[in-house]
Design a protein around this nucleic acid. Structure first.
Lengths: 339, 339
DNA sequence: TTGTAGGCGTTATCAA
DNA sequence: TTGATAACGCCTACAA
């Protein structure tokens, strides 16, 4: 536990330099000596001190992962996938769960640099208050990969999904089923994903001549409870839409709870398209047709991008990866009823 | 980014000792000097190097959290709660997602000691192959708090839930509704939670004179797919039970999918009690009556226990906290039908 | 092949 | 109040 290379050296009557070389498979040690050192190390229960090591080689094999909510299955799936690729290369990850709290984000960011992480993977806080900090970090050489929420103003690797075309396609799909009165629960206009998804929706509404009514399109602020209330309002309006699109997993849940509580038959009376995939969407009745994000690929890509940046010394221009979402057809969409 | 106290010292024409004292609010610096140092530090964008610091003070403000699956909402909820209390005291957490892979668990454990974490919160791998390692770590002074899966053989703080009485109560509840033919999908006998939950079930079966049939009680190995298959088998048996208890969230999902695919009405034709709570359980039809674990309290307690152990120098005898589960009544239980 | 010694950035002890 | 200096454990020229 607290044995150092000094102890090994002393007990073997050799120098710490030799021990270090032996332990790190460097040249300059005889085979026999290396064996002896390795054995002694095991015997003494030696474990390298990565603080000292990191200080010397300026590398900690640690990366920070900054997200808004680890309870959100989207994030835990992405993290799980990141962990897989990072672990394969012996990197650890420090989780920074910042909610939507910019000052917590700031504190964590500073903590990460003080701990000398080799890089950061971040889904920056929605409103982008800390843009300048990210920029400063990058300028100072910190490797950063952004995901989920893209910040155009930051020149660095990023991974996002085709948010606007995702909702565009959702509208198109509903339209093909004959829907021309489509409502939506969107996130937050000021956030990247919120903005993009709403944009795609509105474009499609225009392109496909879908009726638009401001009472049908409301913000659920990415939250279940808000969405539940907004959905109730929409569904209770006199001339209600025949279909509703929810723009993330929590909001989808809110909408589904709303139709359940109002005792509205899905998809007979109203069709629903969700966003993100979650276990419950396949067991609930009806199973929810939804736009799914490839969380596994998102995590892998982000981690790989960061690793590449860390391990290559020549900084290349930023890679911007845009991944495709797909519409998973289940049971919550049908042609509108004829009344 | 790469300014050190040396830079501050030099640019102010003073010694690093003074700078250090000023920065750390230690006595032995004049007020004026402290101000000057603080200003210069900000001007130069100084950030402490926690590797060097940790090396000196033997403290990293980092704890490792070792779990089997971060995608499991049980764990992500617990972690979220741990993060809250840890963050409040400026500790970071390193996530170790080990699946059910003992060698990965071993590697991560070693990584954690090499990174000099101040403590470890762990839900040890099910079969307990690495017991001796945990024991050795504790003997060497590492602070460890176990949760979810208790290992009696390890003398250290722990927090678990009253697993056996949880399933016992579930049977009792069903029995009160008139069920005397009750099936179960349990986890893995060799694991702590798997064992305990099955034990409580069997005890209740005996105490309440519930009919027992080995075809009704099968292992879902904590997995959805297995449980789905086992549930299908149970439900297709000629003399099937009138109620089924599933013993974790994934297995509950498997059972619910099974009844859905077999087109069996719940709770009219068969009653179901799940384990753990998840979003989907409240939206699916019927909403699932389930045994819920207080994930929030579990995480808080484990983190607090660890923090206490870290921050007190006199080692006290281990605290074993057992938290209560509760049965959340929703819609999936009714009296058995009369055929 | 092996060893010596300096330094990574801090903090802490002891003098000045 | 301030400063010089020795660690913490490791790696790495460079010298032997």
């Amino acid at each position: 536990m607290k044995t150092s290379i000094k102890d090994i050296a002393k007990s073997l009557g050799i120098s710490t330099a030799t021990v270090s070389k032996a332990l790190n498979n460097k040249s300059g040690v005889s085979h026999e000596m290396r064996i002896k050192v390795l054995e002694k190390a095991k015997e003494l229960g030696y474990v390298v001190n990565n603080l000292a090591r990191g200080m010397k080689i300026s590398k900690t094999f640690t990366v920070g992962v900054l997200i808004s909510d680890i309870k959100n299955p989207y994030f835990s799936e992405v993290i799980s996938s990141m962990e897989r690729v990072l672990y394969a290369k012996k990197y650890n990850l420090i989780i920074c769960n910042v909610g939507e709290n910019p000052s917590k984000e700031r504190e964590y960011l500073e903590l990460l640099v003080s701990k000398k992480v080799d890089g950061i993977i971040a889904a920056p806080s929605a409103e982008g208050q800390n843009l300048s900090i990210y920029r400063k970090l990058i300028r100072h050489g910190m490797k950063i990969t952004l995901f989920d929420r893209l910040v155009d103003a930051i020149q660095t690797d990023s991974v996002v999904v085709d948010n606007s075309s995702a909702t565009y396609e959702a509208v198109k799909y509903l339209n093909k089923y004959g829907h021309s009165k489509i409502g939506a629960i969107y996130g937050i206009k000021g956030s990247y994903t919120g903005h993009e998804r709403l944009k795609g929706f509105l474009e499609a509404v225009k392109d496909f001549n879908v009726k638009y009514h401001e009472n049908w399109v409301k913000s659920g602020e990415f939250k279940e409870e808000k969405s539940y209330k907004r959905a109730i309002e929409i569904l209770n309006s006199k001339d209600r839409p025949t279909a509703i699109i929810a723009m993330n997993n929590f909001m989808t849940l809110g909408v589904m709870r709303a139709v359940k509580d109002l005792n509205i038959k899905v998809p007979d009376e109203v069709s629903i398209i969700g966003f993100d995939d979650a276990e419950w969407m396949k067991v609930c009745s009806p199973a929810v047709t939804t736009v799914v994000q490839p969380t596994d690929v998102i995590g892998m890509t982000a981690a790989t991008l960061l690793l590449d940046a860390i391990e290559s010394d020549i900084p290349s221009s930023p890679h911007h990866v845009v991944l495709k979402t797909s519409l998973l057809e289940r049971e919550s969409v049908a042609p509108p009823s004829k009344n």
